[in-house]
Structures are given as structure tokens and as C-alpha cells.
Amino acid sequence: MTTERHVLTLMQWLSPSFPVGAFAYSHGLETVISSGQITTAADLEDWLKSVLIHGTGRNDSILLRAAHAAPDGTALAEIDAIARAFAASGERLMETALQGDAFCKTVSDIWGADLQGLTYPVAIGAAAAHAGIGADLAAAIYLQAFVSNLVSAAVRAVPLGQTEGQAVLAALTPLCESTAAETATATLDDLSSTAFLSDIAAMNHETLQPRIFRT
């Protein structure tokens, strides 16, 4: 049963103040902003819709759910290996690995989850299971936090106004909820990505100069 404590715990874990350094990553957005492909709030909303439905958003929700249901450490390690193999570029792997590692350390220290070196969505799913937090709630709030971080990056880099950024986030929140719901019966065999421009942007960011974000 979901409780207010569960919601508050997830909000703490996925808050910008939680020490995973999410503010330092743009998930390739900096590349397309630099090239002039994203210049308006409408451009940003369309880009993030694709990432949610066809790319990282959907896949992270599947990985989070699989980790939540993992029966033991061996299964969890296998899920994490798949998550690493599915990263489309070196920077994508760095992003999920470094954030996941930082998350594991803090959650283990405070909540006693005994997690080490997992990719970010896998770590969230395993921690949620340890805390008795349902996968449905964890997936939905994770996706909203994922989008929120990218909106924040775009507000700084485009730049966009704060109100425009919040309007984009509000428009995408129902999609976060529906994407989380649609992966409820998905398995690791359903992992896929057709958000090719997002993947290419992440690859090109590796040589982008000058740059502000790590990815």
C-alpha cells in the first residue's frame, strides 16, 4: 500500500538536492541546442516527448521495474549489465553509471539498502523495493524527475524562461504517467530505442566544444 511516507521518500531521492549531480547532465540536449535544433519551448517539448516514448524514458522505466522485481542480487546484477550494454554511447553510460553509483552510496548510508555500483534506474528500482515503495509510483515519479532535469538544463542553455520551462514540464507530466503505466507488463525483451536523433546527439556531445554539461 502506498503511503505519504513513500511519496515523500521518492521526492527526496529524486529531488535536485539529492547528491547525484543530475544538474551536470543534459542527456545530449546541449548538442542540439548548440546546433540550433532546439530554440523554443515547443521544440523542447517535442524532443522530450520522443525521448520519453521512444528512447531513454521508456527503457529506464522497464529497467526500474525489472530491478524492483529482481529476486536476488544475481538477478539484479544481470539487469544492471543489460542496462550498461544498452547505453547508446560512452556519455550515456557515464551518465547512468555515475548517477547510479552516487545514488547507491547515499541510499545505502541512510536507508541501509546495501546497494553498490548500479546504473541509475536499476538503483532506483532496487531501492524502492527495499523501502516497500511500489514500482508504479517509483516509475512515474522517476520519469517526471528525469524530464524535469532536462527542462532545467534547457532553461539554462537555450535559454528559456522559467515559466516556459514549467509549462513544458506540466505538458509532459501526463506522458510520464502513461509511459510508466504502459511498461507495467513489459520485460527486458521489450527494451528498444528509436529516438535516434537523441542517441546521435549524445554521441556528438563527446566532442562538442565549448560545453557546459558533462553529457
Score class of each variant (00 low, 15 high):
residue 76 L to Q: 04
residue 93 L to C: 08
residue 112 G to N: 05
residue 99 Q to N: 10
residue 79 I to M: 07
residue 127 A to R: 03
residue 71 P to D: 05
residue 90 G to D: 11
residue 122 V to A: 01
residue 85 A to K: 11
residue 123 A to G: 07
residue 73 G to S: 12
residue 90 G to V: 07
residue 105 K to E: 14
residue 74 T to L: 12
residue 114 D to L: 10
residue 115 L to W: 06
residue 124 I to G: 00
residue 71 P to F: 03
residue 97 A to L: 14
residue 107 V to G: 04
residue 111 W to D: 15
residue 126 A to C: 04
residue 126 A to F: 04
residue 82 I to E: 07
residue 84 R to C: 06
residue 85 A to T: 08
residue 80 D to W: 00
residue 98 L to R: 14
residue 125 G to N: 03
residue 71 P to K: 11
residue 75 A to R: 08
residue 115 L to M: 12
residue 99 Q to K: 15
residue 86 F to W: 06
residue 104 C to P: 09
residue 79 I to V: 15
residue 72 D to N: 07
residue 90 G to L: 04
residue 80 D to F: 00
residue 122 V to N: 00
residue 117 G to A: 14
residue 90 G to I: 05
residue 117 G to D: 15
residue 129 A to P: 06
residue 119 T to I: 09
residue 83 A to K: 09
residue 102 A to Q: 07
residue 99 Q to I: 10
residue 87 A to P: 03
residue 85 A to H: 07
residue 85 A to C: 02
residue 93 L to K: 10
residue 85 A to E: 11
residue 112 G to K: 07
residue 125 G to V: 01
residue 101 D to M: 13
residue 107 V to N: 04
residue 77 A to C: 09
residue 91 E to L: 15
residue 81 A to G: 13
residue 92 R to D: 10
residue 106 T to F: 04
residue 80 D to Y: 00
residue 81 A to R: 13
residue 98 L to H: 11
residue 96 T to N: 10
residue 94 M to W: 03
residue 98 L to D: 12
residue 127 A to E: 00
residue 111 W to S: 13
residue 87 A to L: 09
residue 80 D to C: 00
residue 120 Y to E: 01
residue 124 I to F: 02
residue 85 A to W: 02
residue 122 V to L: 06
residue 99 Q to E: 14
